[in-house]
Amino acid sequence: MQATIGACKLELVTGDIIRQATDAIVNAANSRLAGGGGVDGAIHRGGGPSIMEETRRHYPQGCPTGDAVVTGSGKLPARCVIHTVGPVWEGGQNQEKSLLASAYRRSLEVAGAQQCASIAFPSLSTGAYAYPLQQAARIALHTVATYLRLHGRPDMVRFVLFDDRTYEAYADALAATLSENRCR
């Protein structure tokens, strides 16, 4: 599924984020930037030890929830990896919505600072961090669409979704986001 927002392209695909040849891929990192499972583990395994060495050297204090930092990509086809920390779901009473939106926004800001024309995101916080998928998809797409409308960059944002269930949640959220914007 694709959409155009201003001069920017937003697309949804099912696939493996470590195979994306975009300027940047986004890592669903933990706050210690210590590697882990899921997307984080796949990126570190695929990119090799240079990514972990760089995070330890440049970010010894880690990365706060809702923020983002950048490293090289090691052996991955992307030019760089943007590590962002989404919130752990705690019932929605601990600023999870604003922290998740911030993780997407900060990733886009870091991509802009790196002059990235394209970026690929996973579905942040919906795996081990247990954020409800439909809610997370709406927040992700609303945040990214708003950023693209305001800033007109990057040229292309791709959501690389792990399975059909996640893809469908994001497709529904994208349709709703586009419909909302037509009504304003």
Rank of each mutant, 00 (worst) to 15 (best):
N30K: 05
A29I: 01
Y131C: 11
Q93A: 13
V39S: 10
E90P: 07
A137G: 11
H142R: 09
H58E: 15
A117S: 15
E11L: 01
S73E: 08
R45L: 13
E54L: 01
N94M: 06
E53M: 13
L12E: 05
I43E: 03
S123A: 15
A7I: 11
V13E: 13
P64G: 10
S50T: 14
S123F: 03
H58Y: 12
A42Y: 06
L76T: 07
V13I: 12
A128Q: 09
Q135S: 11
A128D: 09
I82K: 14
P132Y: 01
V13F: 08
E109I: 06
D67A: 07
I119Q: 14
Q20Y: 00
I18T: 15
S118G: 13
E96L: 08
T84Q: 03
D40M: 04
E90C: 12
I5C: 08
L10I: 02
E109F: 08
A140L: 02
L141A: 05
L10Y: 00
Q115V: 01
Y104F: 07
R56W: 00
T14D: 10
G127S: 10
C116A: 06
E109H: 14
C116F: 00
I82P: 14
I139E: 05
A117P: 03
I17V: 10
V69E: 06
V110M: 02
A140C: 11
Q114S: 15
D67K: 08
K97M: 13
R45N: 15
V81Y: 09
P77Q: 01
A68F: 04
R138S: 14
D16V: 09
G35D: 06
G15K: 08
G41E: 04
S123G: 11
G91Y: 02
G66I: 03
L33K: 10
G74P: 04
G35A: 00
G41S: 05
P49T: 06
H83V: 14
T4M: 11
S98Q: 12
H83F: 05
T71S: 13
